[in-house]
Write a protein that binds this DNA or RNA. Sequence first.
DNA 1: CGAGAATTTGATTCCGATCAAGGCCTGTGG
DNA 2: CCACAGGCCTTGATCGGAATCAAATTCTCG
Lengths: 252, 252
Amino acid sequence: MPPPPLDFDDHKADRDIDLAAASCRNCDVVREIAFCADLSHDEIKRLATVRCHAQLPPNFTVFREGDAADHVYSISGGAVKLYKLLSDGRRQIIGFLFSGDLFGLGLESGYAYTAETLTQTQLCRFTHRRLDSLRGEMPRLERRLFSMTVKDLVAAQEQMLLLGRKTAREKVASFLLKLSRRAVEQGLPASPVALPMSRADIADYLGLTIETVSRTFTQLKRDGVIGLPDSGHVLLLDGWRLKETAEGGLNG
Amino acid sequence: MPPPPLDFDDHKADRDIDLAAASCRNCDVVREIAFCADLSHDEIKRLATVRCHAQLPPNFTVFREGDAADHVYSISGGAVKLYKLLSDGRRQIIGFLFSGDLFGLGLESGYAYTAETLTQTQLCRFTHRRLDSLRGEMPRLERRLFSMTVKDLVAAQEQMLLLGRKTAREKVASFLLKLSRRAVEQGLPASPVALPMSRADIADYLGLTIETVSRTFTQLKRDGVIGLPDSGHVLLLDGWRLKETAEGGLNG
DNA sequence: CGAGAATTTGATTCCGATCAAGGCCTGTGG
DNA sequence: CCACAGGCCTTGATCGGAATCAAATTCTCG
């Protein structure tokens, strides 16, 4: 594999302007989903002047909980997990992020979570300072950032319901459905869902242990609701039953 | 008790302009905390033109999950709980809100939760439509709404850690500390913390049962960490130990 | 092929849920 | 004033789902 650049290089910003505008213009999927959607070509160009790219390897820590929150990141390819830790090592994954997602926004007193890549990942980085000044001049950008944050909040509230009140089976079913819906949004098929994260990551996202996640997958497979071609992919065989399971509609 | 008006009256808006401006100008606590903070007198006046008040009794449902999201609410006095339900009645309380807090913001496809008063509560109501047009003209308002939403998101992420990874004892300790800190922000004493919500509400907020909440209170009292003068108030006797307990630092 | 990690499976334990009383406060009506 | 009804909260006994402990299996990759 080619040695990936582990650091962002702010000095390349000028050189990257056209590339950025081009990628935002040409790649329909990213243009629709990323936070530069709805912006004019000129606005995208201005955004690009304060942005720089990086290609990061898997399991790379972008920043840690408590670090000074200097930058905002946008994912242009790959996958990222955000998590919080307790002093004894217990971990809660706050979210799995994919192409078009944003993170690191709005924190004044240091990042509230650690961000780590799951796979090889392409990130756009913006300094908080520069992005702030642009926001003041571009109302559509401001609105876009706002609505993305609200969407994150709604998702977080849904996750609270899952963590506080759902059974292991319901949690896993909800998780698979969420991944599947997200894949569809990205233009991918709904059914063979890719799991770029480990069982440990899934467990820490759902408030379970590795063993319980594994057992629940096996159980759902035994019941004919899903298929497990390999540990990194899940087939949704019975979408209706999975949906019912996720909402506590049937089973135990 | 005087019969409280159960409905908002939009036609009183004009009449209320001066009152609104006055209350935001004169009441320091609300001015600092509510989302009209940082706004000029003129801006507050303009906000007031699209706003209307209501005094609501305890246990009053402001709106239900799934209702069309027409309005945004600001609490000027009292307390509100937001919750989500599963089809079989399991409930997760998403948040307890107090003076200065905002809710109902940014939902395009219906409210994502039910909002219900805990105590007698004074609310300001704004239509989404009118507030949206004002936001376009008042960047400081836009920023304020944004930063309040980010704060909610950070709190939601903290709550995910609590729900997914903390023990019952840690959950209750964290809850009491959060209430105490909030009281201090409001200018109230840190120690006799008021609990305007029932044990059932606390349980549904922490992902526990009523019985476990009650037992945990008793246990913390037995250990000399808290005092329970009555079921609606808690004395924080050993703040340091409570903090340690909340973060999983000691005990089991 | 072999070392080490990730995942699955099995046996047992334990924390919090459930089931079941019992106590306490508040309001109401005799 | 007291009796009583109905919440709400607390306490006790038991149960069960997921955690923990332990081991086997599969996957990965040199």
